[in-house]
Computed example of a mutant assay.
Amino acid sequence: MSLTITVSDLRQFEYCQRIVFFSYCLGLSRRRPTTYKMEEGDLLYENVAELEAQRSLQSYGLQEGERHFNVRLRSGKLGLSGLLDMLIITSKEAIPVEFKSSFSAVVGTNYKAQLAAYALLIEEQNGVSVNRSFIHFIPARQSIEVKLEQSHKKAVLLNLDKIRRMIERENMPDATVVRGRCTACEFRNFCPDV
């Protein structure tokens, strides 16, 4: 596999396939516009690791565990890489945790895809099965458990293939049917029909 796809690409592909198309086929990722929402998210992330290290693991339903922040994961076999916000390792399991700056504590399919991708990377790298994960919504100070089924992991593998075919053929996919997502999209100006 020559092209390495990122976990962020998989998350974006689930949200709107055109974002990945514009990034790879038009080379817009190198000059990607920054939105207000992106800047606000960066500000929230600055101190979250420091604050998280001081919290107990109780919000994750754990009594013990070791936290690792900004964990780089890569699989040559899958052609996939990513930077996980936090990985909790216990004597029984490995649990990926993603921090989100969204004020709405809703776990969308794009977040599930992201967590399932991290699960695949952790399973390959650490040789453990990953069956659950968490999203920690920073503004709400709420951690939501996300169960990871085999169907989520299979969907990641299917989407990796779809992304590679889309890039190879340079076929622009349809815009998302959820047009509300287009309002604050950094690629809105590149969509001819939105």
Rank of each mutant, 00 (worst) to 15 (best):
S91L: 14
L43D: 10
L57Q: 02
V156N: 01
R74K: 11
T109G: 12
G61I: 10
P33Y: 12
C185N: 02
S23T: 01
L84S: 02
P173Y: 00
A119C: 08
Q114F: 02
R11N: 06
L84F: 06
N126P: 11
V7A: 02
R30A: 15
S75W: 00
L158Q: 15
F21Q: 05
S151W: 10
V156P: 05
V71S: 09
Q17K: 14
Q63T: 15
L26P: 07
E46W: 13
D161S: 11
A49L: 13
E93A: 12
K153F: 00
E50I: 14
K147P: 08
A49M: 13
R31F: 14
R179F: 05
L158C: 12
G27A: 10
A155Y: 06
D85M: 04
K162A: 05
F69W: 05
R55E: 11
Q12D: 13
R74A: 12
D85C: 05
L78R: 02
G79A: 04
L43F: 09
F69Y: 12
M172C: 06
L148V: 02
K100V: 03
S8N: 02
K37Q: 14
R32P: 14
C16H: 03
G41I: 09
I144N: 03
S81W: 04
V48P: 05
V177C: 07
F134Q: 07
M172P: 08
G108H: 09
E14T: 14
Y36P: 12
E124L: 09
G127M: 08
C16R: 00
K153M: 01
V48N: 05
L62Y: 01
E124I: 07
R179Q: 04
S59Q: 15
G76L: 11
R169S: 10
T34P: 10
K162L: 07
L3C: 01
R55A: 11
V130L: 08
L160I: 01
G27D: 07
T109M: 13
S23N: 13
L83R: 13
I138C: 13
A53K: 10
N126E: 15
E40Y: 11
F21A: 04
E66K: 15
C25A: 11
F103A: 14
R32K: 15
K100D: 10
T90K: 03
S29K: 15
I135C: 10
K37G: 11
I88M: 09
L157D: 04
